[in-house]
Design a protein around this nucleic acid. Sequence first.
DNA 1: CTTGCCTCTCACGTCAACGTCAGGTTTTAG
DNA 2: CTAAAACCTGACGTTGACGTGAGAGGCAAG
Lengths: 126, 126
Amino acid sequence: MRIGELAARTGVSVRALRYYEEQELLVPQRSRSGQRHYPDSAVDHVRLIQELYAAGLSSRTIVELMPYAVDGRATPELIDRLSAERDRVEGRITELVGTRDRLDSVITGAAKNLRTGRSCRVGPTG
Amino acid sequence: MRIGELAARTGVSVRALRYYEEQELLVPQRSRSGQRHYPDSAVDHVRLIQELYAAGLSSRTIVELMPYAVDGRATPELIDRLSAERDRVEGRITELVGTRDRLDSVITGAAKNLRTGRSCRVGPTG
DNA sequence: CTTGCCTCTCACGTCAACGTCAGGTTTTAG
DNA sequence: CTAAAACCTGACGTTGACGTGAGAGGCAAG
């Protein structure tokens, strides 16, 4: 399929797809006239890329991890890299859970404040 | 305290503190000569700001939520805003948990691949 | 053939949260 | 008093993942 269709199917912009190519994340074939042609598998490929971006990985990191997703070839280094990223994501989750709990207690305090009309201090821990 | 000490205590840069002021997140008093002077509470204040940044909130959003943190005054709108951000954070957590699990299964597959030396496809779902 | 949409390649613009440098003033230590 | 350290105000630079517009070429339909 051509770039417009892939964009429509994945929900990412045409510009983004060209950017992915620039970053060597998704390199399509070219017709004689220079138009990009993607296989059907590109749809899932793009979704994976998006997910990894959403997880906070950079293009460079994704590029480094792609060889595995592409040809299924694993090396110890690759596994280390994947594990490191997994741990990073895990760390982010922990942070965010803490923040969510903080927000929860702030909200609870605020709601109480609202009911009583009294100003009960809720700021940073302490 | 002056800006350098606050920076040292919080671990954020002097530049960042000046940026926070620019964004009206943390407005200190000024001496006659123009130097910034912060109260002790600014330390916790900065930490809260950092945490909210880390949670993915923008300066603008933080500014909107600050009135509560500053004077403890809650309004229904503020609580809605806080709840909305809480839900955003919760959504991010769910996403990241999914990604972590995806990474886990990829890693497991890769490790198995490595042991067997066989290429077992692990890519996007499907 | 031409209309119209899709695509191409530059290449500059954007946005957030600062980094960094320049050039000058204030505070502090000796 | 002097020198160093800390502070001040601009103001331009950085990074990542694109947005946006210009100007030109490609392709199926009438």
